[in-house]
Design a protein around this nucleic acid. Sequence first.
RNA 1: UACCUCGUGGUGUAAUGGUAACACAGGAGAUUUUGAUUCUCUCAUUCAAGGUUCGAGUCCUUGCGAGGUAGCCA
Length: 565
Amino acid sequence: MSNPAPATASLDFIREMIAADVSAKRNEGWVVTRFPPEPNGYLHIGHAKSICLNFGLSLENAPKARCHLRFDDTNPTKEEVEYVDSIQEDVKWLGFDWGDHLFYASDYFEKLYAFAVNLINKGLAYVDDQTPEQMRATRGTLTAPGTASPFRDRSVKENLDLFAQMRAGDFKEGEKVLRAKIDMASPNMNMRDPAIYRILRAHHHRTGDAWCIYPMYDYAHPLSDALESITHSLCTLEFEHHRPLYEWLIANVDGLPSQPYQREFARLNLTFTVMSKRKLLRLVKEGLVNGWDDPRMPTISGIRRRGYTPTAIRNFCKSIGMTKYPSLTELGFLEHTVREDLNQHAQRVYAVLRPIKVVLTNYPDGQVEHVELTNNPENEADGKRQVPLSRELFIDADDFMETPSQGFHRLVPGGEVRLKYAFCIICHEVIKGADGSIIELHCTYDDTTRHGAKPVGRPKVKGTIHWVSAAHALDVEVRLYDKLFTVEQPEESAGEDGDFTQFMNPQSLEVITAKIEPSVAAAKPGAHYQFERVGYFYTDPKDSLPGKPVFNRTVQLKDGFLKTK
RNA sequence: UACCUCGUGGUGUAAUGGUAACACAGGAGAUUUUGAUUCUCUCAUUCAAGGUUCGAGUCCUUGCGAGGUAGCCA
């Protein structure tokens, strides 16, 4: 309703290309994509863009379409099962399903080995004895061509023997490498005889110690795509220069079951955060955040725990589009899509974050009444609830000003404000402690202003504030999250040799004890709420206990008054 | 001083040789027992210069700017 699909949806350049392939009956009209994460970290919102693209394409082109989840696990020194598990959980949570199509590049090690032998036999690969330093030195530079390795012209037989010995473990790590024989003078560095197999004496999370040589990404990826009959291999812009190598392998390896092609799109950049696994890993390892699923992290698990919803994230990914321009999306836009979804679904409750006690001096001591409140004005079917009201209340410190600023129309000394769905109160006295701090406000209520009553001849009360009954309110832990960094682009602000962590926001987390209406005692972990007039909150799935929810602030409500200040 | 890619309001995108549009953000207003939501209005855009064309954001040339690329990482 709030997000209608345009009557004539325009296609992005990827979908346009794929639609053309489908109508040209390329691959018999099939669209087979894949999401290929390396299990070396947790997925982040940038991955969500790729997931929505690849799995979205599969949904859009059904039934002649599917999307594989493939773990690109070719570097055992960096990969762990913990990451494999979290990645699957995150993709599922986003609402996508790979069905039976769960794969691992490591499933193909034997075939990939055979393909390498094939290349050697064709004179298109050779074993190089050079050290990494020597290889670097002979690769040339961006402006100068490289020079051939002295081992470049080994015989096929010698290469075959050496490669077999590499596999057998006859050499030390780093001692030898298998290289594709392409062109040391290519203007594209990736074509200057790239390494395709290296020796790594590391335990692999799936193949154990069966292998001591592992294929490089550039080699394994196109061939894995071909083995799975992927039709469209979609990746981010930094792989653009690798495309010629991708195509070289598809063209030169014999016996591939399909001819996939690669296209690239711009990765997502968001303001006020960092989006590289390396940097996120550093935040985790150095304890600068509380783990991968810290609600301040841009990880899927982080924003899930923050209270973002799959719908919001999918809508966001749809809205930002798909281009080759390396854009920088405002964090505010993501927050907009989150509010848009939560506004429809979040149950409303009254919570006072920074309480000030209010005593209604003319309200009978010991009396308790119940006020009926709407759970969600956006959806009447969500029903009503009863909230207790009594002589002593709490209101939010933000809703009282002793010396009000221009345009403030909440409670002030001598002024009147409406307690939402209850009645109007007038503040007569501000009781202060010895240090000058406000202890409580003494107010009177006007019984003629109860909800539904239409008293005539009294001045219109502009302000309406929320409240909780002091005797009935629950104390709950509330975590107020804010942006992780104080600058839009932490990496850029830090510069080449600067440290982006210097821009971390010291106020990105504040833990407070709030006063909240008693109905939330029944709140389940993982539930979305709107604290009326304050923001959206999510009951922490890890730390909430029965009867004792812990709330994470998902996002604040827009505040028209803040803008005027 | 190499190669590849990309330049449309502040931000993200659309316009596929034919009226430069949509969303977010900003501003003004209406409604509102959430300063929310909703609604109305509004501000603001084709990197530059040439060329082709009846007509160019779109095609061509040059320039400028931005991003990427020299792992036995992915």
